[in-house]
Simulated assay, not measured.
Amino acid sequence: MSDSIHPQRDDQPIDARPGDGPTHYVIRGFGYRAEVSEVGAAVRALVYDDPSGPYPLAGSGPDPEHALRYAGAVLAPWPGGVRDGHFFFDGIEHQLTVTDPDRGAAVHGFVWNRKWNLVSHTAARVEQVIEIGLQTGWPYRLLLTATHELGEYGLVASYTATNIGDYHAPFGLGVHPYLYAGYTPLDDCTLRLAAGTRVPIDRQRGLPTAYSQPVVGTDFDFTEPRPMDGVRLAVPFSALDEDADEVIRHRLCGPDGRGVELRTVPEFGWLYATTETGRADGGPERSLALIPATCPPDAFNLGIDVLVLQPGEVWDASWGLGVVGFSV
Rank of each mutant, 00 (worst) to 15 (best):
H176R: 06
A42C: 01
D100L: 09
W112T: 09
Y48F: 14
V47S: 01
E65K: 14
F87I: 03
D229K: 13
L309H: 05
G165W: 07
T122A: 10
Y180F: 15
R141P: 01
G81I: 03
R286T: 11
A41I: 04
L321S: 03
E246D: 15
G217M: 07
D11N: 11
T23I: 08
R258T: 10
P139C: 02
E261N: 01
A41W: 07
D50K: 00
T274K: 00
G85W: 05
H86E: 13
P208K: 03
G21C: 04
Q128T: 13
H66F: 15
P170L: 01
H121C: 07
D50Y: 01
S327E: 15
F237C: 05
D166A: 14
V328L: 14
P292G: 02
Y211R: 14
F237Y: 15
A34D: 02
G259M: 01
D187V: 06
D50C: 00
P177Y: 10
T147R: 15
T275W: 10
P185W: 10
N163W: 06
N301Q: 12
F89N: 02
P236Q: 04
A293H: 07
P297S: 10
A194G: 05
L307V: 05
V231S: 09
I5R: 04
G137D: 02
A41R: 01
M228D: 04
D90R: 13
E149M: 06
F89C: 08
W112Y: 15
L155A: 03
A124E: 14
D63C: 03
V129Y: 09
D20F: 14
A41Q: 02
V235G: 08
I164S: 08
L173I: 15
F89R: 07
A210W: 04
D187S: 12
D15S: 10
R69C: 13
R44A: 13
S4C: 14
D221F: 06
Q135T: 07
S238G: 13
P284F: 11
E131N: 13
I5G: 04
D11C: 10
V43I: 14
T274H: 10
